[in-house]
Computed example of a mutant assay.
Amino acid sequence: MVQLSGLTERSFKRRFKLATGMTPMEYVHTLRLEEAKQYLETTDEPVEAIAELVGYADASFFRRLFSRRVGLTPSQYRRRFRSMRLAMQ
Rank of each mutant, 00 (worst) to 15 (best):
R15T: 06
T43M: 09
T23N: 05
P46V: 06
H29W: 06
D44E: 13
K37W: 02
Y39F: 15
S11T: 15
M25G: 01
V28I: 12
E41D: 04
F16T: 06
S11P: 03
P24Y: 05
P46F: 08
M22E: 09
Y39Q: 06
L40G: 06
T20Q: 03
R14T: 14
E45N: 10
T23H: 07
R32W: 07
G21V: 04
L40W: 05
A51E: 08
T20H: 01
R14S: 14
M25L: 12
L33K: 00
T43E: 08
Y27G: 01
E35D: 14
K17N: 11
A19Y: 07
G21W: 08
T23K: 07
P24M: 10
K37L: 04
A19F: 13
E45Q: 09
S11G: 09
A19V: 04
A51R: 08
Y27S: 03
M22S: 02
R14H: 14
E41Y: 04
R10D: 14
Y27V: 00
M22H: 03
M22A: 02
Y39G: 02
V28F: 00
E41P: 02
M25K: 08
E26F: 00
T20F: 03
E48V: 12
T30R: 05
R32L: 10
I50E: 00
A36Q: 09
Q38F: 11
T30V: 05
I50N: 00
A49H: 07
L33E: 01
H29D: 07
R32K: 15
S11E: 15
T20W: 01
E34A: 11
L31C: 13
V28M: 01
R10T: 14
Y27Q: 02
F12K: 08
T42K: 10
F12I: 12
Y39P: 02
K13H: 14
V47E: 10
T42A: 08
T23R: 07
F12N: 06
R14V: 13
S11R: 14
L40Q: 06
H29M: 04
E26K: 00
R10H: 12
E26P: 00
L31V: 09
T20I: 09
P24T: 05
D44K: 09
V47R: 05
F12Y: 15
E26G: 01
R32H: 12
E35S: 13
M25A: 10
T23E: 05
E48H: 07
M22L: 15
D44W: 11
K37M: 15
P24K: 03
Y39C: 04
E35F: 12
G21A: 13
F16E: 03
M22G: 01
R10A: 15
L18Q: 15
Q38K: 12
E35H: 13
V28E: 00
S11L: 15
H29L: 05
T43V: 11
R15Y: 14
G21Q: 09
T30S: 09
V28D: 01
A51P: 08
M25T: 11
Y27I: 01
E26I: 00
T23Y: 04
L31M: 13
L33F: 04
L18W: 10
E48C: 03
